[in-house]
Design a protein around this nucleic acid. Structure first.
Lengths: 341, 341
DNA sequence: CTGTTAGCGCTTTCAA
DNA sequence: TTGAAAGCGCTAACAG
């Protein structure tokens, strides 16, 4: 691998000149420019990005910390980030936290040590203030779902409470009275806010939230299955289910089916997230759609403004729009159900 | 941010000594060690990984190039890579090629410029020999699904042909005679080998492969839908479908349903990949399961042996086991179907 | 046992 | 309009 010095020697110019023609950073006479270019292609020179980073204190790399890239929701967000990054010439380091506080810490440190230009952080632990204290506060960071006044980071939030409310309200309007809920076990704000929205909608409609109908599991297909199994094993009847996210909704629907319960005929199920998968499952999922790909894009944009465009103002808190999309997994409470339960 | 020199000064030792205590790279007397440690924690010193990389010619970073991280199959492989990397202290740069040759090139260059220690490449373009010529052949690389003698890279392959054969044979054994096929449009070897396996199984059973029953679309839910729509619009009857991958299978099942065709009653569908999703769809997917997470792990392992463990031998070509898992989306050809078609 | 020195490959003053 | 020189923060000879 040839270095800038090899090119300089080969072209009979100084290293500075080589650098200047490559980066178009100051005028270089046509003759020299040509000689440099020739040397560059002859020796197949490629600038060493590590050296450049050390010198410029800029790596053109950001980190993306998310719980689990194999969950379609995070995968779709990640794709938005990667895509925006690619266009802007910045690469993204993929970090799965596995919803573990320790792993979040490790990655935060690692990224900071690697001198990334910024971090996109989909946090799952509540102690986020502690986390950010781990790293230089000047390191640009955009956090999903958390907004803290003590935190000087930008954030991208979604109205989780409103979404939970909306989904539950939809179920209530369909005539359901006994509505169960499954949500991620983590006490992280996104899912608990969704559950709060569920509670509020129930309360506003004068319906009781029965503890037995509230299940917390892990944020995967299996979590949804566990929830459904648990609910079915309980003594309380229900005709509808609000799942804290689509993946759990799909898992729950499957478990219902395995136990002879049809969705939506016997139980209506509403999810949250709007992952692509929800459009093709049978039944297609009624859910609160949030823009995943676009969220990734916007998160990157926020970061980029600080990294490249010199924005240095106060933290910004943008919010993502959500929308109730009614598909096949919910339906009006049937007369037969009303009578039997 | 303090540097190693700050620590050295603060502890009254040389930079070399600081480096040596931090990296435990040679014996340092307890006194000095303590002083260094004290300075490190007082100044909250963190070594700059970029500087270290420049010096050591090692970045502890690898690149992962895959078509699309939001496709569950690649997502699950990526997770395996990331997880193995995390444990070994190497970070992974996420690169979506979007199945575009240009983008594969860009990323290969980028990664190489960034001095990554290795690349895991899930290639989708046939011109892979050209691609690898873009970068230093000494850069460790493990390629998925391609095995080229001209290529000096390690590879991880799966018996795509055998899998396609197996899935089709399963359909044939169920009594199906008119078996359609949808597969990714790319002429990349994985999917075309799967289709070849399908063809061979048909031929071995004395069945005709009808061109009209072969559809190529994109490797997403929508590709599967397109395939189903196309097949249904055609004049040829079919009672079963082999989909080149699970995502297309799920899309196809959904489209069938939208057009009043029930799977598996009216049409049996078999997929390929074994993504987690296939266990929870309704109907659950009959498919050729390949180890996704484990594949990522193993790919990383191969790379790591070259990066860290000094392996410098000839290219290795490992293969991943596959398995036919029969679930709900396939069933014996019903008498009624036999008569009507 | 530890410190000095050189240098990884690049960019950026500064000087000409 | 260009070159020389310094230096980003670290590690690895080499000396002592």
């Amino acid at each position: 691998m040839s270095t800038i010095k090899d090119i300089a020697r080969h072209a009979g110019v100084s290293a500075a000149t080589v650098s200047n023609v490559i980066n178009e950073t100051r005028y270089v006479s046509p003759e020299l420019r040509d000689r440099v270019m020739a040397a560059v292609s002859e020796l197949e020179y490629r600038p060493n990005a590590v050296a450049k980073s050390l010198r410029k204190k800029r790596t053109s790399t950001i980190g993306l910390i998310a719980p689990d890239n194999s969950n379609p929701f995070f995968a779709e967000v990640a794709k938005g980030v990667e895509d925006a990054g690619f266009r802007a010439g910045v690469s993204v380091i993929l970090c799965n936290s596995d919803s573990s506080f320790d792993r979040e810490c490790s990655y935060l440190q690692l990224l900071s040590d690697k001198q990334v230009d910024g971090i996109i952080f989909i946090a799952t632990t509540p102690e986020i203030d502690h986390l950010t204290r781990l790293i230089d506060p000047r390191l640009p960071m955009v956090v999903f779902y958390r907004q803290s006044d003590r935190l000087m980071t930008d954030s991208l939030v979604v109205d989780n409470f409103g979404g939970g409310y909306l989904a539950t309200q939809h179920l209530i309007e369909l005539g359901h009275r006994h509505i169960a809920c499954v949500a991620p076990a983590s006490t992280n704000s996104p899912s608990s806010l969704r559950v709060s929205g569920y509670r509020q909608a129930m309360e506003d409609a004068g319906l009781a939230v029965e503890d037995e109908l509230l299940f917390r599991g892990d944020n995967r297909f299996s979590g949804g299955r566990d929830g459904a199994r648990h609910l079915l094993a309980g003594t309380r009847r229900f005709t509808a289910l609000f799942a804290g996210n689509d993946v759990m909704a799909v898992g729950a629907i499957r478990e219902f089916r395995d136990q002879g319960i049809d969705v939506p005929r016997d139980v209506s199920v509403a999810g949250f997230d709007g992952i692509a998968l929800g459009e093709v499952t049978i039944p297609a999922l009624t859910t609160i759609v949030q823009p995943r790909y676009d969220a990734g894009h916007r998160a990157f944009g926020l970061l980029y403004q600080r990294i490249e465009e010199g924005y240095n103002g106060p933290p910004r808190h943008e919010s993502l729009g959500i929308e109730l999309v009614v598909r096949e997994s919910t339906m009006p409470l049937a007369q037969s159900q009303k009578e039997s339960k």
